[in-house]
């Protein structure tokens, strides 16, 4: 079931996103973005990476950028994380 790498089979599974925006946010902001990881890039932009529960959660996140007047550069959905062991996924599928 998990052989397609395009769209996750289970629509309820959180998806991973990478959001790039202009400027750096201090560490104190990591909490403000629901545990997503903040990385500062050398070109003066930042990247926020992590799992987003669902699409409404993603839109809520984007709204925060709007409210802080942070300039968005890109929003990319990431492929399923390679480090999550495929065996476990398969076992889970088998149980269902």
């Amino acid at each position: 079931m998990n052989e397609t790498h395009d769209i996750p089979d289970n629509p309820n599974e959180p998806e991973r996103y990478e959001i790039r925006f202009q400027g750096y946010l201090g560490d104190r902001w990591a909490d403000g973005f629901e545990g997503l990881r903040l990385n500062q890039e050398p070109d003066g932009t930042s990247i926020l990476t992590g799992s987003v529960a669902d699409q409404p959660a993603l839109y809520g996140l984007l709204r925060r950028f709007r409210d802080l007047n942070l300039r968005l550069i890109s929003v990319i959905r990431l492929e399923p994380q390679p480090e999550s062991p495929p065996e476990i996924n398969r076992t889970q599928d088998g149980c269902q």
Partner: peptide, 11 residues
């Protein structure tokens, strides 16, 4: 500085 303007200035 590249920091978010508000962050920098509020501090």
């Amino acid at each position: 500085d590249n920091r978010y303007i508000v962050d920098y200035l509020v501090e």
